[in-house]
Each structure stands twice: as structure tokens, then as C-alpha cells.
Amino acid sequence: MLKTIENSAAVTQAADQNQSTPPMVRFDKVTKRFGDLVVLNALDLDVAPNERVAIIGPSGSGKSTLLRLLMTLETPNEGVIYVEGEPLNMMPRNGKLVPADERHIRRVRQRIGMVFQHFHLFPHMSALGNVIEAPIHVLGLSRQEAVTRGEELLEMVGLVDKRDQRPSQLSGGQQQRVAIARSLAMRPDIMLFDEVTSALDPELVGEVLSTIRRIGEEHNITMLIVTHEMGFAKEFADRVCFFDEGKICEQGPAKELLTNPQNPRTQRFLQAVLG
């Protein structure tokens, strides 16, 4: 409904044209350090269009940093991140790649959206205001268009009756669903979910997860999901990457990796998490 049919047809067509299609996201030897601490260590990762990748691992393993680099909240120390073949943190100039300027970054990052652990809704705007703000001022939609779309999205996340409420009047789960709608309103091709249920009371986790499932059913969006919800990862993700010490320690099809991990570290982690 929100993504056009041609678009999804184009994706299928592109996929048919063999492997020459660039991955939707590519990390090419990306290193991120905070001081002496190496958070990501020469990481390579390709994500195919419309693939859903769950990223799991102990805290401090670099999984959130991966998303933050892709959202340009952090800048890599080394390496290049590509979005559908186009460099994000670098840009071509005179046949070389140089650090990207803000204009380049904004153009490429237009295709990426992110949902945060702590929602980060704009507290001075209503739920609808949060959803229409950027479409009006960044995408340049008319107010009317933005409101129509914003209401559709709030409907989809089940909150159209809360459209005029401020974030402070909503529960955590409701705030997170508004945050998802706000992100979708920018029509991203790639959505990043950074532990989006970790700050929620247990009984509110389900409503957020089912919202994400619904997006998966209704939209063609590449998703990178950092999560501790192993059940959700197993049933929703195409692939699971287990991160440890700034590297992908093991990865594979979700069901396979989560039920039958090969690497001893993965086994230990899953044992600890699943109990």
C-alpha cells in the first residue's frame, strides 16, 4: 500500500538479474574505535534487498554501533559503508573516495530509518505531529498529504485514536509504535531497529513486535534488527549474525543458527540467554 507495486516488481526483477545487483547494505572492512577500545574490527557484512537480519550478541559486542554507523550517528575510523552500491560515509571525487560532506550523507541516508531503544519521540509534538514533521519539512510533502499518510501509518500501528496525544501521555509500547510510524513515514528502504523492546515492560513487548511483523508483511524493507528476543529473531529474521568482540562470530539462517549453533561462543551465549 505504501510501497508501490512497481517498486516491489523492480526489486524482484533486479534480484533475477543475478548477483550483479549490489547488496542493499555493505560494510567493507569497517573499523570503529572509541579511544583505544575497538568496537568494530574490520567488519564485512552484506545485506541483500528485503533481507531481514537479526543481530545478536553480548553487550559491548558492537551490534548497536553497527546500526549507529549505518544511520551516520557515528563515523567509521576505517572502511566504507555502501547503500545499494553507493558509498555513505565517503564520496567519490576525482576518482578517489574522500570523506563525505553533509549533503552527500543526507542524500544517501534518506533511504535509512531507525527506531531507538528509548523511542526519542519529539516531546513537544503530538503523535501525529511526530509522524508528519519530517515528511513535510524534509521530504517536502504538503501538509495535507503528510497528514493523510501519517494517519494511515498511525492506523497501521493501531494508534490513530491517539493522534493528538503527546508522547508523555502514551505508554512505552505506544510511544515505540509512534516512533515506528515516524520512521516509516520517511519511506525508508532500510530500517534499523536498535533493541526496540528492551526498555519496555514485558507485557508491552508483544505489541511492538507484532507491529514489526506487520511492516514485514506489508512493506518491502530491508531490516537490521538488534534484539535480545530470540523467539522473534528465529521466526522473523532470514539470517542471524552473532556478534562478539567487534566481529561477526557466526552467522547463518535464523532457525539453523539459533537451534544448532556451531561456534562454542555462540552456544554459550544462547545457553545463557535462553536459560
Binding site: M71, R106, R109, M114, H120, F122, A134, M186
Partner: peptide
Amino acid sequence: VPKGQYEATIAVNMTRWQAMYRV
């Protein structure tokens, strides 16, 4: 103003100026 607010403006691709005066 909490850092998360700046990050949210980046996630919806606002310019630095828009982030400043709108959020």
C-alpha cells in the same frame, strides 16, 4: 536537551538547522 533528540532528527534526515529550530 537529551542527545537522543539530536539522533532522532538525524534518523528522519533533518538538516542541522532544521533539527535546531524545529526540535
